[in-house]
């Protein structure tokens, strides 16, 4: 079971969180013309990579905040966690 550092609450066990997928996906702006390709990339296409992955988790049994977690998908190592509005340096 992962041990995730919620930037709002501190270290908490994985069973307080729910997984939210790739955090690098950016929703196209509302009212903007979007090509099929662009939209499919947003809705469906994910890299599913092995290694360092920036992903979303929601602290559902805690502060209910969506947070960003930088995690290795192979080793499960967590490098850093961020608040939703926090920018991160690659």
């Amino acid at each position: 079971m992962l041990y995730i550092n919620c930037p709002h609450c501190g270290m908490r066990s994985q069973n307080e969180f729910s997984y939210g997928g790739d955090a690098s996906v950016i929703r196209p702006l509302l009212e903007k013309e979007v090509s099929d390709k662009e939209w499919d990339d947003f809705v469906y296409n994910r890299k599913s990579l092995r290694g360092k992955h920036l992903e979303l988790w929601q602290h559902i049994f805690g502060c209910r905040q969506w947070i960003k977690v930088e995690r290795d998908t192979a080793t499960h190592e967590i490098f850093r966690t961020f608040k939703a509005d926090e920018e991160f340096a690659k």
């Binding site: 729910s18 939210g20 929703r27 979303l56 929601q58 559902i60 905040q65 969506w66 939703a84 509005d85």
Partner: peptide, 17 residues
């Protein structure tokens, strides 16, 4: 009920803060 709340929170916190 639970999914809709998470859904709204997602957009408010991440997409349209």
């Amino acid at each position: 009920a639970a999914n809709v709340l998470s859904h709204l929170e997602y957009y408010l916190q991440l997409v349209w803060p």
